[in-house]
Design a protein around this nucleic acid. Sequence first.
DNA 1: GTCTATACGCTGATAGAC
DNA 2: GTCTATCAGCGTATAGAC
Lengths: 234, 234
Amino acid sequence: MPAAIHESRPNRRGVEVRERVLRTAWEAFSREGFRACSLARIAADAGLSQAGLLHHFPTKEDLLLAVLRWRDELELDQVGRTLPTHTGLSVLSRLLRLVEINVELTDVVRSFTVLSAESVSEGHPARDWFRARYTRVRAAVADALQSGVDSGEIRAGTDCHAVATEVCAVMDGLQLQWLLDPGAVDMVALFRDYARRLDAALRNPAREAPDTPDGQDTRDTGDTPGGTAPSAAP
Amino acid sequence: MPAAIHESRPNRRGVEVRERVLRTAWEAFSREGFRACSLARIAADAGLSQAGLLHHFPTKEDLLLAVLRWRDELELDQVGRTLPTHTGLSVLSRLLRLVEINVELTDVVRSFTVLSAESVSEGHPARDWFRARYTRVRAAVADALQSGVDSGEIRAGTDCHAVATEVCAVMDGLQLQWLLDPGAVDMVALFRDYARRLDAALRNPAREAPDTPDGQDTRDTGDTPGGTAPSAAP
DNA sequence: GTCTATACGCTGATAGAC
DNA sequence: GTCTATCAGCGTATAGAC
């Protein structure tokens, strides 16, 4: 098959352009939300024309969904791998670490805050994605906590799924207030206080008490050293 | 001054129209966000033309700010009066009551979630309003808690402002997850669990322990019986 | 694959009659 | 005060040359 020589499906150049567009679109959606920002602007920032962009992603909605799918892959590569390795209450330390990373990544946090809230509208194209995302994140945190119950570190009878939902809520809620007023809201300190109190409440009193999530924790948290943009809303 | 007979500044008819437009705009902004919804649609739903609407509110931004100011008045009439009457840990019962009311007011909650998140964008017209709102709400809750510290009900040394910020975060974060997936998130039960645990952590152990925020609380919470749309995000 | 040119709807806002 | 008529501008999306 000599024709296969110029096979163009996984074209190297094409993949590069596609990825550059995805990254640019993600940043644009972050700053202004999906509905408010224009394809022309994204195309210009990515260094091609609007028509050129629409060659790769036929509609704006297709672009959004592609961006979310792309974020999914990045996230699963990072959080999806590091989070489940922490079991029991150490998951709180891991999440505190995530907050410490997020406080340096304002744009990423704003992305999730703006897009997730926008997506609660009826019929929003990202709604299913965010619902699935929260379902998955809650389950991951709940699983980590449940293994703590199983090992006896956490009190028996703890509703792990409820606690997981609450922890996600605290992270998201703090992000909103922090974005609105960074000077008035010390997101890291606030989450640390919350995590400490939660740790104390969940810990099984019938056992010795070792590591609390106090930020002085120096164990390996499974992060890549540079911290390449992990998940924002937990 | 016979000319004063047809004084038209606080025209009764004009006030009615104005209020109808505000209510309609509030509902529209709720469903779709500020940027996504059009003046033409709001005008039609309020029963007048777009030009007629712009006679009362010269620009779309003016309309948004008027809506927010109008909500402010409603809110101050209700929460602003009832919240400060609860001091110490009873403020948690009051906030639980608020969550119970909000779970019946999906549209109001969606309003606050969509608009507040949209407002974190740089230069958004509602940004200052939401920042000021959170500053005020945090202070109100913190004041209530502080009087609990003063009376000895709450542990000495409690950082009331930090706790107030956290409580607001939990309410907002739960609202987001609940709006995305009402069947999977029991907002009232989750906030009740959180409030109970917080109550236990803050309560001064040197004193007897009376009322916990358990929803069986039948004391008067200061609400009007019908519950006419109080604040959503705390 | 990428471009220029363009179609065409909808946006917020204005002018002026009634 | 409210309307109809109209504006310029920007939005997404398409057609067709290269």
